[in-house]
Computed example of a mutant assay.
Amino acid sequence: MRELRRSWPIAIVLVLALGAQVLVLEAEPLYGRQLVALGLAALACVAALCAHRPVVATVCVCASVLVTTTLICGPGRAVFLDTAGVNGIDGFDLAPGRLGIAESVAVLVLVAMVVRTARPPVVVGVVGAVALVCAHATLLRVGLHSWFTEGGTRVVVLLWVLSVGYGVLLRTRDGERAAAATSAVERVRQDERLDLARELHDVVAHYVTGMLVQAQAAFVVSDRDREAARHALPGIITSGTDAVGAMRRLVGTLRDSAAGTATDDLAADLAVLVDGARAAGVPVRARIELPAPVPPELGRSVLRLVQESLTNAAKHARGATLVEVDVELTPTAVRVSVADDGTGRPAHSGGFGLVGMRERVELLRGRFHAGAARTGWLVTAELPLAVHR
């Protein structure tokens, strides 16, 4: 049914062809065989609409043309016997070409649609069968001599070439659309994989890093101060619980793309993030100036940028005594800055944190910078509001 609904333009063309055929026959009273032949032409038009089933459609169209030829020429002549026609030896009850409009349109539509949709072996079989039936009908109805002398050959060949060419054109366009759709689906999947990778890195790795930092600190002081090492355990448990919660939220996001994709209160979420970093031992000082609400999707990216920057500071900023976090809302953008005064650490290379942050900002048409400052490391980003308004 879906294929039939898509074929309504073709159905209109076939109906118009049948209507034109009826107008041609309206000048004279219709005989019984003429009515039957007109019905057979209608059957051929209906079969042409079912070209998505090429074998059945081809059988119906060929049978319609063959039976119509038999009605016009008589059973004997239809099998090339030297006998009288249906109206005697001198003529036919149906004039040559009387039903040619509807039959011809049905045949051309069938050929074009089969070339468009069927497999190459099926296309060859259908085109060959229809060509043989049409050649048989033309030879008997018009006569071989008349067909060549009246220029019918050129017309028929041209119509067949146009039909096959149109089918090839449609087949090519369908292939291009399918390739474009496949490419689009692959791009979406790639974006989803990248987004998942960012979330795993930005969220889960953040909490795991906090656990490692606290565990390392507890290990260092465990020999000389067991009580201090014991006090680090609740922080590790809290970070582990947060990591499990983040994983569950991430799984929920995968099951429902509308869940967990945004933050409704960026200032509160940033405050929780900073408090968690302080609890993990990162010396953070934050200045958050958000006098107006930030679009939730944009706020999510801001939160992830700050989160990843604090994670990097905890992992790489050796000897840091201060990590400054500045988040400011301007009339046109949200500005983020995370700077530390750590020294003697390797550059942020070889990981995916900076790559993910840069990708996030570039997708939002913003500006991003990360690099060594006069003291420590500096990450800045500017995310425009216009994209989310």
Rank of each mutant, 00 (worst) to 15 (best):
E199W: 06
Y166W: 15
R230E: 06
Y207T: 00
G143Y: 11
L162K: 01
A137I: 01
V208W: 04
L140A: 01
H145Y: 12
L194D: 08
I236R: 04
H231K: 10
L194Q: 07
T241V: 04
P121K: 06
H201K: 00
G152F: 10
L158E: 00
T172L: 15
E176K: 05
H206V: 00
V142E: 13
M211Q: 11
L194A: 10
V157P: 02
L170D: 12
C134W: 13
R230F: 01
V185S: 09
G167C: 07
D242L: 15
L139R: 13
M211C: 12
A178L: 11
L200Q: 08
A228H: 08
A179I: 03
L170Q: 14
R141I: 08
L158A: 13
D202T: 08
G235A: 08
R177Q: 05
A181N: 11
R119V: 06
R226M: 09
A137T: 03
L159M: 10
V185K: 12
A228W: 03
D191T: 06
R154M: 07
T209S: 15
V157R: 01
M211D: 05
E176H: 07
V204I: 11
G143E: 12
A205T: 13
H206M: 01
T153P: 01
G167E: 13
Q214R: 14
V123M: 09
V155I: 15
I236V: 15
T138P: 00
R198P: 02
R173F: 08
D202G: 12
V221Y: 04
S183D: 08
A229W: 06
A217F: 09
H231D: 14
V122R: 11
V126K: 07
A229Y: 05
L233I: 14
V126D: 05
A215G: 07
R189K: 06
A229I: 03
V155F: 07
G128Y: 02
E186G: 01
A178M: 09
G165R: 08
L233V: 15
H145P: 00
L159W: 09
G175S: 14
D225I: 02
E192K: 10
H206Q: 06
R177F: 05
G152W: 06
G235I: 04
L170R: 09
L144Y: 05
R119M: 11
V127M: 07
A181W: 04
A180P: 01
L144W: 12
A232L: 07
A215N: 00
D242H: 14
L144Q: 07
L140V: 03
P121H: 08
T117L: 09
R198K: 09
A180D: 09
R177G: 01
V208Y: 02
E186H: 11
A129F: 09
V168Y: 02
E199L: 12
R171S: 08
L162R: 01
A243M: 12
T149K: 12
R224L: 05
E186C: 03
G235S: 02
V127G: 08
A181F: 01
D202W: 02
E227I: 06
L196T: 15
V204D: 02
A218E: 03
